[in-house]
C-alpha cells in the first residue's frame, strides 16, 4: 500500500495549476492507493459491455466506492488530469473488500478507469490502480463493381469492421446483421434483398441483379447490436455510399 499524502493547500494549488480534482480523504487529507482492479476487456466499441472489478480494498470490508473514468490527460502523456464518476456507479457499497461495476465502453480512444473509495471512519480514502480500456471505432464498408449490365447478376461485399491502428480489421464478433441499401431520389434508403448475418470476419457477399439502367447508389447498413446475454448496446452504422453504373 502506497500512502499519498496531500495537504488541502497543496491540493488547491494543484487544482489551480492543472485542473486536477481535489481528492476526498480522511480529515487529515490522507489518501492511499490499494486493492486490485480488473476489466472484462482491454478494448471495445463504444457501447460494448464493460465489467470492472475491484478487490482487496484496504480498510473496512464494506465501504462506499465509485467507479471513475479519466476524461483528460496531460498533453502527450497517459497521465490523467481529470476524473469523473461513471454514471450509476456512485454510492455503491463494497462487500468483502471488493465490488463489481457494470458499465459500457466510452467513446474515447483511450479510456482509463479506477475506483475511488472515500474515507470511512478512521480509514483513509482509497484509490485503486487505474486500468486503460481502448475505445475502437466501428466501421462499415461496401465493395461494388464500377459497372454492371441489366439482367446480369453482380456480387456486392457488405462488411463491418473495427478500426484499429488506422486499418479496418475483422470485428471478431460474429452474429451482427447487415443489409444492402439503395438510395432513392429523395435521399432516403431502401433495403435491397434480405438482412444477412455476418460471421467473425464481418463480411458477407450478396448477389444483385439490376433491372434498369442508370447510376445506382448503394451502401451497407450495419444494424444496431445488442447480443443476448450481454449489456452491449451499439448503434447502427452506415458505410460511405458507392455507385454502380448499370448499362
Amino acid at each position: 500500500m502506497t500512502a499519498v499524502r496531500r495537504t488541502v493547500a497543496a491540493a488547491t494549488v494543484l487544482t489551480a495549476l492543472v485542473g486536477a480534482p481535489v481528492l476526498t480523504g480522511a480529515a487529515d487529507g490522507t489518501t492511499v492507493t490499494g486493492g486490485t482492479l480488473a476489466v472484462s476487456r482491454t478494448a471495445g466499441i463504444p457501447g460494448e459491455e464493460l465489467v470492472v472489478t475491484v478487490a482487496g480494498l484496504p480498510g473496512p470490508a464494506a465501504r462506499r466506492a465509485t467507479l471513475e473514468r479519466c476524461v483528460a490527460y496531460a498533453s502527450g502523456t497517459t497521465t490523467c488530469t481529470y476524473w469523473v464518476a461513471v454514471e450509476g456507479s456512485t454510492g455503491v457499497t463494497t462487500t468483502d473488500h471488493g465490488y463489481t461495476f457494470h458499465t459500457r465502453v466510452h467513446a474515447m480512444d483511450r479510456n482509463a478507469y479506477r475506483v475511488n473509495a472515500p474515507a470511512s471512519g478512521t480509514s483513509p480514502a482509497v484509490l485503486s490502480p487505474e486500468l486503460p480500456v481502448r475505445g475502437v471505432q466501428q466501421e462499415a464498408t461496401i465493395k461494388v463493381p464500377a459497372t454492371a449490365t441489366v439482367g446480369t447478376p453482380f456480387d456486392v461485399t457488405l462488411a463491418w469492421a473495427v478500426y484499429v491502428n488506422r486499418t479496418n480489421q475483422p470485428p471478431d464478433r460474429p452474429g451482427r446483421q447487415l443489409a444492402l441499401q439503395q438510395r432513392n431520389a429523395d435521399g432516403s434508403w431502401t433495403r435491397v434483398g434480405a438482412v444477412v448475418t455476418a460471421p467473425s470476419s464481418g463480411a458477407v457477399t450478396v448477389r444483385v441483379t439490376p433491372t434498369v439502367a442508370g447510376a445506382v447508389t448503394y451502401r451497407t447498413a450495419v444494424y444496431a447490436w445488442a447480443p443476448a446475454g450481454q449489456d452491449t448496446r451499439v448503434g447502427w452504422f452506415p458505410s460511405y455510399p458507392s455507385v454502380v453504373v448499370v448499362r
Partner: peptide, 25 residues
C-alpha cells in the same frame, strides 16, 4: 489531439453521463 480535446470537454461537461469529481477547469 485527444488530450487537448478532452481537457476542453472536461471544462464543459454538464451532461448526464458524467459527474465531475472535484474542481473543474
Amino acid at each position: 489531439a485527444v488530450a487537448t480535446a478532452v481537457a476542453v470537454a472536461a471544462a464543459a461537461l454538464v451532461g448526464p453521463h458524467v459527474v465531475p469529481v472535484g474542481e473543474a477547469a
